[in-house]
Design a protein around this nucleic acid. Structure first.
Length: 955
RNA sequence: GUCCGAGUGGCGGAAUGGCAGACGCGCUAGCUUGAGGUGCUAGUCCCCGUUAUAGGGGGUGGGGGUUCAAGUCCCCCCUCGGACACCA
């Protein structure tokens, strides 16, 4: 081997410069060791994972229980990695290495989510093809990740932009396109089965004609309306600044694009949608079957927003004398008797049909908005609302609205109640109309207060209630008519009773509402998967499977046409539409020119890792069942990846979309797992301090020093400290490359894992990294002579204290690794090594004490462990074990030190035989001189003996 | 506003209801070195006390409670972070 080039050769005399020692573990030696082992692992295919079937079938190589570990795959940005990015990757790697050493068949791979806007924008600016930029970036990412020593199966790396990958993305899309959701069976079924049902008359056509009476075009229209992927002309989020439409999830609460922060307008445009709403119930219900953080489950439940309630019709009359019903959705039908007015969203279709010519006699002045007629008031209010941005509408929560001049009839008591329009009712939820019950809804209460509307309490809030709207449970009051009385019933019973009555009378019905909308699936971009769809004049047609993939055409200009960000009336124009020859299939057929959103590839990449070279199927069914199938030993187990690690920022979007795709594939019998991710773990983030000078300019964080008084200065000038992200613009980026160069990958890995539990966010602190390196140096020094490079271990047997500590350490470290508590595992290894240094530092560590340490370090610091293992004389890599096992014999001890508490405070200690029974412990404690002194002759009231813990004397 | 998380030394963080502060950084002292640094050894929660030992008291955001015993369990409040946000 070679180490420090300056000092190879004769052992140097001990000097003041420890780095001059030729065999000292320092950054240079680490670099050499790390590179060598990384090459060896690659050459030997150490981390190639066997499959039971498919193109890579080597069932004979499979040993032990399978474990599928997965990281949320990265987008390969041009900026490269900073030290925060690999935190989770290292975390899964440590677990994977530990599991491999303990006899598991571990699948762990890394790919790239490589479609997306930045490469396209870079292409627009520079003319470089997005594929070139993307592939360059992927290469750089791979190099950066490789130097960290991650034990991925390199053969399984995929990128969503690989033609062979997106061929299957398109194939899955076709499956979705060729399916419909059978509400009765609660599952997706092939569209051919729907056609059969129509043809056999089992299912009625929308207008009641027989299936055969419909023209082919009409039949197609009917069928298309059932598909899980469909085109609809519907209000969508049009973002002129980006030149594309966006999914609801990509629009911020203040009506702007998540990327770029451009204004977003609601426009009716023809776009592809995926019928995720069909899965709303299963997406909520199956959350109970997965092992995910409660917070993420809560976010998904919240996003899907299931609420059970009733739809109720309130009859009224339009200004042309037509009798119509205002349909409302309410979750509180039990409060119907307290509905004292109604509100329509300003955009509600009835809003302009209701106003009569004149204000009714005696209309309250506050209700008219100062307008001469109801129609004028409504029009003016509608106009004012449409001018308000989403943000204004949300920030300004004072209740506004106008009376439409019309009254509707409350079906439970026949009372005429006024109908308003107000912007606190949203057209996008429920029916866009509400019954207002000020007594039990604070928003209605606030509105009623402004407009002087009556309040009728229908739930008794109790005597000492002095609040406004009461939303709690209580007995119903004031809620009876000639036929029915809810009085005295609690909320739940009252709901049931009134819904039965409404259904019986035909006034309403029980319904379930969701906040979740269908998923807008098309984008006007170049760098995405083309749809495997061609059009004729009657609609979309699937590209036959054997003609996949539909490859992205080459075009001159990659940019979507963007517009003035404020130009709401502009029309999207996808870049693919410019590839005229590609678009035109023949005289009657042309290609779909939208592309899929970036989420598409991440909806199924975890399936492709399983069988990346299969060109017959997206994954071999047996391979899928092996790695992801439900565990028959766990009833209700939905299957899925065994551990999925990533940031919480994907709580809703990616995780919801992927779950839906998985369920479609499951329904169609293509996969055996009902859920993609059986267990989810949210890693924390590495954050960093940033510093600004008095001008507010970010100064290099690396060069800032802390003063004794606690302040911070840069070049002697005081600076302000902020805490948050790491970023180029904040001048505080630290890269893994720098850390590998200054300390080595093992030190870097160990540092990241020791600074806290994996789920915790924590600040980056370069100065602390040295602690991890010192530990590795001390281990190295205990085994290798720093001057000669010779082994220092002895063949002596370790003493009993060392054996006991060793086996306690083994037991503890195993537990910690399994629970992803790498910080405490590292602490135990440090303690053990400190013990070895203290006990054997001068004479050499017994081999039997050193080898287990090396093995236990391997998951955390694999390179130095492999190196030491080899130097200790082992020819086989330790990647597959053996991991030390704790011996019960050394976990028991002869004597134990017990703390003795008096009244809950530790006052003394005693050492007693480990097998002492409670009576003996009590006697020994009471005989303790300190206890005798404190009791001063009194008899203790009680003595608590906790075996193995302590004795508490209560006096 | 609603729903989640979290508050422990100068800092990152440890502690199946049972000895608070493991381990690391930093700091202090000593050693080594011509010197410095990523070297070595020891110390390092706060207060009182002692020449030094020995002692004694307090302490996990604040207040209450359960318990022989609470950082840990329960109730109320405060602060910070995140998600959602007029969803009827």
């Amino acid at each position: 081997m070679t180490t420090d080039t300056t000092t190879t050769g004769a052992p140097a005399e001990p000097s003041g410069d420890p780095d001059a020692l030729p065999y000292r573990y320092n950054a240079a030696l680490a670099a050499e060791i790390e590179r060598r082992w990384q090459d060896l692992w690659e050459e030997r295919g150490t981390f190639h994972t066997p499959n039971p079937a498919g193109p890579w079938a080597t069932p004979e190589a499979i040993k032990g229980e399978k474990v599928y570990l997965l990281d949320m795959f990265p987008y390969p940005s041009g900026k490269g990695l900073h030290v925060g990015h690999p935190l989770g990757f290292i975390g899964t790697d440590v677990l994977g290495r530990y599991l491999r050493m303990t006899g598991h068949n571990v699948l762990h791979a890394m790919g790239f989510d490589a479609f997306g806007l930045p490469a396209e924008q870079f292409a627009v600016q520079t003319g470089a093809h997005p594929r070139k930029t993307t592939e360059d970036n992927i290469r750089r990412y791979k190099a950066q990740l490789r130097q960290l020593g991650l034990a991925h199966d390199p053969r399984r790396s995929v990128a969503t932009t690989d033609v062979e990958f997106y061929r299957w993305t398109q194939w899955i899309f076709l499956k979705i396109f060729e399916s419909w959701y059978d509400e009765e069976q609660q599952k997706a079924r092939p569209i051919s089965e729907l056609v059969e049902e129509f043809a056999q008359g089992k299912r009625r056509t929308p207008d009641g004609r027989g299936w055969c009476e419909l023209t082919t075009a009409e039949q197609r229209k009917v069928i298309d309306s059932y598909r899980l992927a469909y085109v609809s002309e519907a209000p969508v989020n049009w973002c002129p600044g980006l030149g594309t439409v966006l999914a609801n999830e990509e629009v911020t609460a203040d009506g702007r694009s998540e990327r770029g922060n451009f204004p977003v307008f609601r426009r009716n445009l023809k776009q592809w949608m995926i019928r995720i709403t069909a899965y709303a119930d299963r997406l909520i219900d199956d959350l109970d079957r997965v092992d995910w953080p409660e917070s993420v489950k809560a976010m998904q439940r919240n996003w899907i927003g299931r609420s059970e309630g009733a739809q109720v019709r309130f009859p009224t009359t339009t200004n042309t004398g037509e009798r119509v019903d205002i349909e409302v959705f309410t979750t509180r039908p039990d409060t119907l008797f307290g509905a004292t007015y109604m509100v329509l969203a300003p955009e509600h279709p009835l809003a302009s049909q209701l106003p009569p010519a004149e204000w009714p006699e005696g209309t309250d002045e506050r209700w008219t908005g100062g307008a001469a007629t109801p129609a004028e008031a409504v029009t003016a209010y509608q106009r004012a609302t449409s001018r308000k941005s989403e943000l204004d509408r949300q920030e300004n929560r004072e209740k506004t609205g106008v009376f439409t001049g019309a009254y509707a009839t409350n079906p439970v008591n026949g009372k005429k109640i006024p109908v308003f329009i107000a912007d606190y009712v949203l057209m996008g939820y429920g029916t866009g109309a509400i019954m207002a019950v000020p007594a039990q809804d604070q928003r209605d209460w606030d509105f009623a207060a402004v407009f002087g509307l009556p309040v009728v309490r229908t739930v008794d809030p109790g005597e000492d209630w002095d609040g406004e709207a009461f939303t709690g449970d209580g007995p119903a009051i004031n809620s009876a008519n000639d036929e029915i009385s809810l009085n005295g019933l609690n909320v739940a019973d009252a709901k049931r009773t009134i819904i039965d009555w409404l259904e019986e009378k035909g006034y309403g019905k029980s319904v379930v509402q969701y906040k979740l909308r269908d998923w807008l699936f098309s984008r006007q971009r170049y760098w995405g998967e083309p749809f495997p769809i061609i059009w004729d004049e009657d609609g979309p047609l699937p590209v036959p499977e054997d003609q996949l993939p539909v490859e992205l055409p080459e075009i001159a200009d990659y940019s979507p046409k963007t517009f003035d960000p404020e130009d709401a009336d502009s029309e999207p124009e996808p870049p693919l539409s410019r590839a005229k020859d590609w678009v035109r299939v023949d005289d009657k057929h042309w290609r779909e020119t939208n592309t899929m959103p970036q989420w598409a590839g991440s909806c199924w990449y975890y399936l492709r890792y399983l069988d990346p070279e299969n060109d017959e199927r997206f994954v071999d069914p047996e391979v899928e069942r092996y790695w992801m199938g439900p565990d028959p030993n766990k009833p209700g187990d939905p299957g899925g990846v065994d551990l999925y690690v990533g940031g919480v920022e994907h709580a809703v979007l990616h995780l919801l979309y992927a779950r839906m795709w998985q369920k479609v594939l499951y329904d169609l019998g293509e996969v055996s797992a009902e859920e993609p991710f059986r267990k989810l773990f949210n890693q924390g983030y590495i954050q960093a301090y940033a510093y600004t000078d008095e001008r507010g300019v970010y100064v290099p964080a690396e060069e800032v020093v802390q003063n004794p008084d606690g302040g911070f200065t840069w070049n002697g000038k005081p600076v302000n400290r902020e805490y948050g992200k790491m970023g180029k613009s904040l001048n505080n980026v630290v890269t893994p490359d720098e850390m590998c160069e200054r300390y080595g990958a093992d030190t870097f890995r160990l540092y990241e894992m020791s600074t806290g539990p994996l789920e915790a966010s924590r600040p980056w602190s370069t100065q602390d990294v040295v602690g991890s390196q010192r530990f590795l140096q001390r281990v190295w020094r205990n085994i290798i002579d720093e001057r000669t490079g010779e082994l220092r271990v002895t063949d002596e047997a370790p003493d009993d204290d060392t054996m006991r500590l060793l086996h306690r350490t083994i037991a503890g470290v195993r537990e910690d690794f399994e629970a992803l508590r790498y910080n405490t595992a590292a602490a135990k290894l440090i303690e053990y090594n400190n013990h070895l240094t203290k006990t054997y530092g001068k004479v050499g560590v017994p081999r039997a004490a050193a080898e287990p340490l090396v093995l236990m370090m391997a998951p955390l610091t694999p390179h130095i462990a492999e190196e030491l293992w080899q130097r200790l004389g082992h020819e086989e890599s330790l990647a597959y074990g053996p991991f030390p096992e704790a011996d019960e014999r050394w976990l028991t001890v002869d004597t134990v030190e017990y703390p003795i508490q008096v009244n809950g405070k530790v006052r003394s200690r005693m050492t007693v035989p480990a097998d002492a029974d409670n009576a003996a412990l009590e006697a020994a404690a009471l005989a303790d001189p300190k206890v005798v002194e404190l009791l001063a002759g009194r008899t203790p009231k009680k003595v608590i003996v906790v075996p193995g813990r302590l004795v508490n004397v209560v006096g």
